[in-house]
């Protein structure tokens, strides 16, 4: 029951916000917001390209070439190392995102304070 109450109070908050008529066009046009989007793009796009290329390269390298069929330790080939490394790559990229987005939260807060919301 408490959850439901909590949610309905959140909903009321949102409705009140809507009643105040947030000027989205104004925020959209503001210099701060443009900076925020630019900053976001600057880390999202390169990282997205990186993890997509890294993980999509495996089927091509594994099935069109033989370069991954090299033994690394014992009978473990480079193909296995690459495959498992994708899991660790995911952990690493994920933690970078969390750090970066904490910075973004700060920027968002600044904009909100500035716009008097």
């Amino acid at each position: 029951m408490e959850l439901v109450k909590e949610q309905s109070s959140v909903k009321k908050d949102i409705e009140q916000q809507d009643n105040k008529q947030i000027d989205y066009d104004k925020i959209f046009a503001s210099e701060d917001f443009k900076q925020l989007l630019l900053y976001k793009k600057k880390f999202i796009i390169p990282y997205t390209i990186f993890y997509l290329v890294y993980s999509l390269a495996l089927p091509f390298l594994a099935l069109f070439t033989n370069i991954l069929n090299v033994q690394v330790i014992g009978d473990i080939t480079l193909a296995w190392v690459y495959g498992i490394s994708i899991i660790f790559m995911s952990f690493a990229v994920c933690s970078v995102y969390v750090k970066k987005s904490a910075e973004l939260d700060e920027k968002v807060k600044q904009i909100l304070v500035k716009e008097g919301l």
């Binding site: 908050d13 949102i14 916000q17 947030i22 976001k40 968002v108 807060k109 909100l112 919301l117």
Partner: peptide, 9 residues
Amino acid sequence: TIGNDVKGV
């Protein structure tokens, strides 16, 4: 980008 529940942020 900013969030719907602005106050929450």
